[in-house]
Structures are given as C-alpha cells and as structure tokens.
Design a protein around this nucleic acid. Structure first.
Lengths: 195, 195
DNA sequence: CGTCTATTTGAATGTACTCAAAAGCGGTGG
DNA sequence: CCACCGCTTTTGAGTACATTCAAATAGACG
C-alpha cells in the first residue's frame, strides 16, 4: 500500500530502507481518499500535515486582495505537498491546497514527523534533501520569472512537464506562469502559427 | 571573532551552544576579507562553500541571455549566502555572488559542513531551520511577484528593509523587484507626488 | 574640476491587461 | 439523441503599464 512512498524515499536517498524502517514509516502515513475539487489545506487555518501524493493531482495556490488565484505549485504522483510554513511553525497556513482530480494522499502529522526524524535517520536525511531541492527549485523559478518572458516560461514548463496541459485546465497553467488565461491562449496560438 | 555566528545560531535555535561546540564550529569557519565589487561565487564554477556575512553587503544574481542582471537576494550582516545548488550537489553554481561593500565573511567548506552536522547536532538542526526558512521565503516571494504590482512590491520591500536604498544602488533594487531602473525611478517619483 | 557612473526625464513602442463577446466542450435531463 | 447549461477557451478592441531608446541631470571619486 505504501510502496510508492518507499520507492520515492529510496530513489531520493539512493539507499534502501530496511523492512523494519519501512514498517515503522508506514504506520505514520495515513491514507486519505479525496474527490475532485476538495480543498484540504486552507489559508489562515493551521495545517500540521505533510502529504505525499500517491495518485491524482493537486495545486497549491494563494488568493490575492483582488480575489485572483495564483498557483504556487502543482502536485502529482510522487510529489510531497502541504503548507510547509504551517507544518513547521504551527501557525496558520499561507497557502491553499486543493485536488484537481480524485486523489489518494498519505498524510503524516507533525508529531509523527518528529518521531520519524528521530527514530529513522534515513528519513531525516531524505526530508532534508527534499526541502533543499524545493528551496533550489524555487530560487530558480524566481530567476526564470525575471529573466524569461511568459512565452519562454511556457515553453520551459511544457518541456519539463509535457502532460501538464492534459491534466490541468489551461487557466491554472496561466496562473502558474503569472499571466491571464487570455494571454496564455494567445501565446499558444502564436506558437502554433510559427510552425 | 566568531561571535556573530554564535549569536546568529543561538537566536535561530533559541538555544545556547556550549563552549566546546562553539570552539569546534569556530575552527571550521574561515574568515575572509573582501573589497567592494569582488565576485566570489561564479555561475558555472563549482563553489562548495557556505558563507556567513559578518559585516558588509553582497548580492546574489544571474545574468540572462540578453546579458541582463537579475538580483535573487541581497545579503547583509547575519545572512547566510552562497550557491546552495553547487554547495550540495558539487556541480557548477547557478548563481553569482558579489560584494556591494567591503565585506567580512566566514566560509565553511562542504567537507567541514558534513563534519559539523555529524558532530554537532545543534548545528544540523540550525541549518535545517535555515534552509526551511529560505524555502518558505522564496515561496512567498514567488507568490508576491505574481499577486502584487511593482509599486506594491517596492513598498513591501522598503517596509521590510528600510535601509536597503541607503546601502544598495537603485538599479540593483530594481533588478531585485524585476523591473528596469527607469521604471523604479518613475515609481518613486509617483510616490513622492502622492504625499 | 573632470570623468565615470547612477538616476531622472521624455517620447514612442510593445506586451500583457481589461472588458466584452463568441465559440468550444462536456455533462445532464428532457 | 439532441437541446441546454455551465464552464473553459478563444478572439476582438481598446487601455495601461513597463519597456526601449535617447538625452539630460545629478552624484561620487580621484
């Protein structure tokens, strides 16, 4: 049942978990089944959970003062998501997370996370790598936002995740790129004409 | 000599270091004196160092295909800087770092960093918190870049760091905000007229 | 004082935006 | 099976804001 988590951890660590380690970890990850369009992390509410996406899709977003939605990140199979700020600080979340498909998650609460880090050094190592990678990715995203125009960012995105548009409505892709749905539509039509 | 590092670590950990711990750590942090405008981390070159800014100022930046500079972050007294990507992966750096003033750094290389994490649990904890905070900050910066216009971002910035414009040339502040120097100049003049 | 760099200002341009409406698409119920 | 509804995407026209190119002013430093 928790095999995807195991694979995910072992792949990032480049090291296998023992049967005992895996069994312990499994006990801390609670499966959650969610329908499409279910919001399970809410801005301004405490969310001391870490989630692993076993199957399905999610997006993490904020709503600005004008009521507009901005996607911070998508989450698919094998992604670790949640509101890290709330998870670590215990304060209200700064992001929202919602399913984009029927989704199966595994959730770990903060108390168990601390246990896991203490008892299973490999998990602590794994998680440190996870946060490091997340940090590096977001720094690069900042850099690319400033150095590339929307068209280039769109091209980079579909190169990295060619299936994104098959799974995610275009207006959410636009919100991830930092542009309006109309603008993304025009960019796409321009690219079609180029060929 | 290394007192600022000690204060910094103890403040973030909310816990004191023992004399023995501090002594060990001090040995791994090598002081570096740099003049103004010295670039000590170069894109495409390996940089397996972590830096603590003891005094002075730095900026981390990229140069895009058009040759334009984009500031990713500034570093002042008490900041931890460097190219995390290169530091952790051992691959060439993706960012450049340069002094903006005569600056005193403490540098720790990756080998010593690993020793420090192993031998001093508090340091490992501290560093994890540091990376976590960096990650959260950059996620929030992504969110604000998309949800706020340049004027709002400028106002938030000078609210957070009122002394920034006293220490950093305006064109670098513009590059941090993701706009051109001319645009920042116009935003500022518009704000003066509003009052 | 002169030179170099940073900042400001002006005018024209361009890119993405807003507002608005039409077309496309999927699902539901008559 | 088709008509209708809601939602997404596309398209059109006018607008706004930051950009570019250019030149003038201001500041810093020798």
């Amino acid at each position: 049942m928790h095999n995807n988590i195991r694979k995910n951890i072992e792949a990032k660590l480049n090291q296998r978990l023992t049967a005992a380690e895996f069994e312990k970890l499994s006990g801390w990850f609670v499966p959650i089944q969610l329908e499409n369009k279910v919001q399970f992390v809410n801005e301004n509410q405490i969310s001391r959970n870490l989630y692993f996406v076993d199957s399905g899709a999610t997006h993490t977003f904020i709503i600005d003062k004008k009521g507009e939605l901005h996607t911070v990140q998508f989450g698919f199979e094998g992604y670790w998501i949640g509101d890290m700020y709330s998870f670590f600080s215990g304060k209200p979340a700064i992001f929202n997370v919602e399913t984009l498909e029927p989704t199966t998650l595994f959730a770990m609460n903060y108390v168990d996370f601390e246990k896991a880090c203490k008892q299973i050094t490999k998990f602590e190592m794994f998680f440190r790598i996870l946060v490091q990678n997340g940090y590096l990715n977001s720094l690069q995203r900042i850099a690319s936002t400033f150095s590339e125009d929307a068209e280039q960012r769109y091209l980079s995105l579909i190169k990295k995740q060619p299936d994104l548009l098959q799974r995610v409505p275009q207006y959410l892709v636009a919100s991830y790129l930092g542009i309006k749905p109309q603008s993304l539509s025009r960019i796409r039509q321009k690219l079609v004409k180029k060929k």
